[in-house]
């Protein structure tokens, strides 16, 4: 039966846009996200910090990246910046999950960057159905 344990399932990516990279240091969150995404026949890659996330983005070229930003530490935001300033990766949409930082504050950072660090935003605690809606929308888009 298709489930969390079935990680190596190469027959999954039949459709063009179905690869998602998770950048999150919390194992439980990764577990849940992987389970619900794989259930939608989406191929999931994981990275447990910002640095590994950027490396994984370059290697795997996902169609969507989900980044959890935690405070303190700019690790998640650094990863977003690295990705959005890399010509090869810039086009990949980024969904940010944020516990402590509110969107308004995040946008202040973005203004300083003059390049948009993210494309979608969800504040914790969020409903997984809302996350799925965003993921599906982004993956369906051309």
């Amino acid at each position: 039966m298709f489930g969390v344990g079935a990680r190596a399932n190469p027959g999954v990516d039949v459709v063009a846009k179905q690869r998602v990279l998770l950048v999150d240091d919390d194992r439980d969150t990764r577990t849940v996200l992987r389970a619900i995404l794989e259930r939608q026949k989406i191929r999931v890659f994981e990275a447990e910090n910002g640095t590994k996330g950027v490396l994984a983005a370059r290697k795997r070229k996902p169609d969507l990246i989900i980044v959890d930003i935690r405070m303190p530490g700019m690790d998640g935001i650094e990863a977003c910046r690295a990705i959005k300033t890399d010509a090869a990766l810039r086009a990949i949409p980024i969904l940010i999950l944020s516990g402590a930082m509110r969107r308004a504050k995040l946008d202040q950072f973005v203004e300083l960057e003059r390049v948009s660090l993210y494309d979608e935003f969800l504040a914790k605690p969020f409903e997984y159905r809302d996350l799925l809606a965003i993921v599906n929308r982004r993956l369906a888009a051309g």
């Binding site: 919390d26 439980d28 969150t29 577990t31 849940v32 996200l33 619900i36 516990g99 402590a100 914790k124 605690p125 969020f126 409903e127 997984y128």
Partner: peptide, 12 residues
Amino acid sequence: KNILQGLQGGAT
């Protein structure tokens, strides 16, 4: 909030 997110995830 992080705990709540955990609960959400587990319940899902």
